[in-house]
Simulated assay, not measured.
Amino acid sequence: MSGSLLQRAQAGDQQAFADLTAPHRRELHRHCYRLLGSITDADDLLQETLVAAWRGLPGFAGRSTLRVWLYRIATNRCLNAIRDGKRRPPTVPVPPFEPPPPSRHDAVTWLQPYPDAWLDDPATAPPARVETRETVGLAFVAALQLLPPRQTAALVLGDVLGFPVADGADMLGVTPTAVKGLRQRARHAIRQRGAVAEGRVAAGVHGAQAELVRRFADAFAADDVDAVVDLLTDDAWLRMPPAPHEYRGRPDIAAFLLASAAGRAGRRLTLRPTRANGQPAFTCFLPTSRGAALEPSGVVVLDVVGDAIAGVTRFLDPRLPELFDCPVGGAAGPLAPLQG
Rank of each mutant, 00 (worst) to 15 (best):
G333F: 05
G3M: 12
T65K: 00
Q279P: 07
H31S: 04
A243M: 10
H29T: 06
R272E: 13
V94T: 15
L50G: 01
P273K: 08
G333H: 11
G291R: 00
L294A: 02
G291N: 00
V299Y: 01
R264Y: 13
C32F: 08
R215D: 13
F324L: 03
L212D: 02
R272G: 07
Y71N: 08
R185N: 14
V108M: 01
A222N: 03
Q10S: 07
T124D: 14
L111N: 05
V68D: 09
V68W: 08
V228H: 03
A123D: 13
G333Y: 04
D226H: 08
A254P: 10
T75Q: 06
A61G: 12
L286G: 06
R25W: 01
L155Q: 11
I190H: 10
A259V: 08
P287C: 03
A16R: 02
P95A: 04
A169V: 09
A128D: 12
L257K: 04
H188I: 15
Q15R: 15
R8Y: 07
F97P: 00
L5G: 03
A52Q: 09
K180V: 14
I190D: 07
L46D: 00
P296Q: 01
D170P: 07
D230F: 05
S2Y: 04
T177S: 13
L111F: 12
G306N: 04
D170Q: 11
L6N: 02
V130D: 15
R8T: 05
P113L: 00
P241K: 00
D226A: 13
N76T: 09
P318I: 03
A143R: 02
L138G: 08
A217Y: 09
L28S: 02
D303I: 08
E131H: 15
R87Y: 10
I190A: 08
L119H: 11
Q209I: 07
I82F: 10
A169P: 12
R88M: 14
A202H: 15
A61C: 09
T288C: 09
A308D: 11
R34D: 05
A107S: 12
A61F: 12
P23D: 00
A262F: 11
R267M: 04
A219Y: 06
T65D: 00
P321C: 05
P23F: 00
G59E: 13
P93R: 00
P318W: 02
L138P: 06
P93K: 01
Y114W: 06
A310F: 10
F140H: 09
R319G: 14
S297H: 13
H188E: 15
R67A: 11
R275Q: 10
P280Q: 05
W237D: 14
T132S: 12
V301F: 05
H24S: 08
E295Y: 05
Q15F: 13
R67E: 12
F140N: 03
